[in-house]
Simulated scan of single mutants.
Amino acid sequence: MKSLLQDPNQPRLIEVDAEAAGQRIDNFLFSRLKGVPKSHVYRILRTGQVRINGGRSKAQQRLSTGDVVRVPPVRVAVASEPERPAPWLRERLENRVLYEDEDILVVNKPPGMAVHGGSGLSFGVIEGLRAVREGARFLELVHRLDRDTSGCLLIAKRRSMLRQLHEQFRGDGVEKTYLALLSGVWTRQRQVVDAPLLKNVLQSGERMVKIAAEGKAAVTVFRRLELLSGATLVEARPVTGRTHQIRVHARSLGHPLAGDERYGDAGLNQAFRQRGLKRLFLHAATLGFTHPRSGREVRIEAPLESDLADFLMAVRL
């Protein structure tokens, strides 16, 4: 049972710093009024109880450094002690940090672990990292990886960094390469797949993506690295960043990813399992971007997971 505490009767005046600049006022309030229902936050905005520099504001208004936000007294729900990740999860994540400075962190995401909690999951990578770094004021995902995908995952430690990195990801400032295993023998050396993708959410909540003319533009460059027994190791470089892009584009080549239960071939996947592959063979091997603060080029590499490396050894010709 949650208890309710009454805040002081006087409104609070909060000056917006550089880290909060650029946020919408509703998101700013959500982060500072923990436990207050969103419907109530929108009501105090709609009724003019929240003021920015003395004036009324709409939910979508963005804040600037130095703005003064008046927040009326509200009743804040105090939650019970939150569940904490198991010690093994904390240790596993801490040991997988590939790069870290005062602004950003890159972790080698474990396979089989979602990037965030939800849909029955108490913890994902981001919740685990927040538990490991209890003193961190801000930790947010810059991008996402599928649950079964391992490799480079970028986390922002400052809101200003998150905004600038998002801009890079939306443009062409980020270079990502993946190691992927195609089912069957792919005879080409290199191929660019330029096929728009349309995302659908099924009644079960599962996301399915297909190639469709009305979809969003999507481009992936595939380059053959090695021919194996019944499979082909490739480097996949997504020029755009659509959901399940590499997986759907690989299927369009007639060579779905090995171990892909959603877009792959069930018979081939069964054969791969019998040879030792227990999951999707997709690994975010490198991540390159411009550091928002220093302007220098950063390139991070994540070593191939041992289970995938062992499987490659087993299927080499």
Rank of each mutant, 00 (worst) to 15 (best):
P82M: 04
K199V: 15
A20P: 01
L13R: 15
Q189N: 09
A213T: 14
V115P: 00
K278E: 12
A258Q: 07
S31Y: 10
S80W: 11
L280R: 06
T149K: 07
P73T: 09
D148T: 04
V193A: 05
R130M: 12
L257F: 13
R62L: 09
P37M: 06
E140Y: 15
S64T: 15
V76Q: 02
S306F: 00
V248Y: 14
R96Q: 09
G264S: 10
F30K: 12
R316Y: 04
R130W: 08
A285S: 13
A79Q: 08
H116C: 04
V298Y: 04
V125P: 01
Q6F: 14
A250Y: 08
P111M: 02
L13Q: 15
L165Q: 05
E226V: 09
R70D: 06
S39W: 13
M313A: 15
R24M: 11
A231Y: 07
D310P: 00
V132Y: 08
R190P: 00
Q189S: 12
K278Y: 14
V221W: 14
L202R: 15
L179R: 07
E19Y: 13
P8G: 12
R96N: 07
G173E: 03
P8E: 09
R90A: 02
A131M: 00
S160G: 13
R242A: 07
G254P: 04
R24N: 07
R188S: 13
L287M: 02
I246M: 07
G48P: 03
V16W: 08
S306R: 00
G267S: 10
L197T: 11
R251H: 09
E83Q: 11
F123G: 01
K216R: 10
F289G: 05
R137H: 10
G117E: 01
E261G: 14
R137C: 05
S119M: 08
S39Q: 06
Q274M: 11
Q191L: 11
I104N: 03
V298N: 01
R46C: 05
V221M: 13
K157L: 12
V298W: 05
E214Q: 12
R12S: 12
P256W: 07
